[in-house]
Amino acid sequence: MQITIDLPPDLEQDLLRQAEQSNVPLQTLILQALRQMIQAPSVSTSQWPEVILSYEGSPDFPAFESYRDELLPPRELELF
């Protein structure tokens, strides 16, 4: 399949520069970028939302880490 797209001049120059620095043909660089974009999960599903990341907890409750010593160790799988 052949697809023709119009690139803004700045993006074209960036792609040409990256291809030259990487010592790969421009077509290969573009194909790699497209494959990576398709295979990578979207940012929204691969990261916690900002509201979760910025949560500081309640000062009335002990920190979760204070219970770490009470946690059971992981079970070891029997291989045979």
Rank of each mutant, 00 (worst) to 15 (best):
Q36P: 00
E65T: 09
Q36I: 01
T28K: 15
L77F: 12
L72Y: 06
Y67R: 07
F80H: 12
E70G: 12
L77V: 15
V24Y: 07
E12R: 12
F80D: 15
I52Q: 05
R17H: 12
I38F: 04
E78H: 09
S54L: 07
R17L: 09
T4I: 06
S58Q: 01
E76F: 08
E70W: 09
E65H: 04
P62C: 03
D60M: 01
L15C: 09
Q21A: 15
L71E: 06
P25C: 05
P74E: 09
F80Y: 10
Y55T: 03
E12I: 00
I3H: 14
E20N: 15
F64W: 07
L16F: 03
T4L: 08
L15F: 12
M37Y: 07
L34F: 06
S58N: 09
A33Q: 08
L72E: 11
D14M: 12
A40E: 14
V43A: 15
L77P: 13
P9D: 12
I3V: 15
E12Q: 14
E50P: 03
L7C: 05
A19G: 09
R75S: 13
Q39N: 10
L15W: 05
P59T: 03
L29V: 04
I38K: 11
Q39C: 05
E50K: 10
E20Y: 08
I52A: 13
Y67H: 11
E78Y: 07
S66E: 13
Q13P: 01
V43M: 11
L79K: 11
M37Q: 11
D10W: 02
L71V: 09
V24L: 15
Q18G: 03
D60Y: 01
R17C: 06
P62G: 04
S58G: 01
